[in-house]
Amino acid sequence: MAITPRRHKRRKLKAEINVVPYIDVMLVLLIIFMVTAPLLNLGVDIQLPQSAAKSIDNNQEPVLVSVDDQGNLYLTLGAAKREPVSEQELQTKVAAFVRQNPKVSVLIGGDKRVDYGRIYQAMVLLQQAGVPHVGLMSQPTDQSSSGKSAAHGRS
Rank of each mutant, 00 (worst) to 15 (best):
S51K: 07
N58D: 15
N72S: 10
V28Q: 02
A52V: 10
D115E: 06
K12D: 12
Y22K: 04
V63S: 05
I119L: 04
F33M: 11
Q100G: 07
G147H: 10
I32V: 15
I119D: 00
E89K: 08
V65F: 01
S144E: 15
V104G: 07
R113A: 15
D45Q: 12
N72W: 00
A15I: 10
T36W: 13
E61S: 15
L136H: 04
E83V: 15
Q47E: 13
Q88M: 07
A129Q: 04
T36F: 09
V28L: 15
D24N: 12
R118M: 06
V25M: 11
G109C: 02
S55A: 15
L64N: 07
G153P: 01
Y116A: 11
Y120R: 01
V134M: 08
I108P: 00
V98R: 03
L90F: 10
K9V: 12
L77R: 03
G109T: 05
S138M: 03
I119S: 01
A129S: 11
D111R: 01
P49R: 03
R118Y: 02
I3K: 08
A129M: 06
V25E: 08
M137W: 01
S66H: 06
R7S: 13
P5Q: 10
E83A: 14
R11W: 09
V124T: 10
A15H: 13
L90I: 11
R113W: 00
V35D: 08
V44G: 01
K93A: 09
K54D: 15
I46V: 15
A150T: 14
A80W: 04
V134L: 10
A15D: 15
I119E: 02
P5I: 12
I108E: 00
A150R: 07
Q127W: 00
L27N: 09
R154F: 11
H133S: 14
I46N: 05
S105I: 14
G147K: 09
L30W: 08
G71N: 07
I56W: 00
A79S: 12
Y120T: 06
S55G: 07
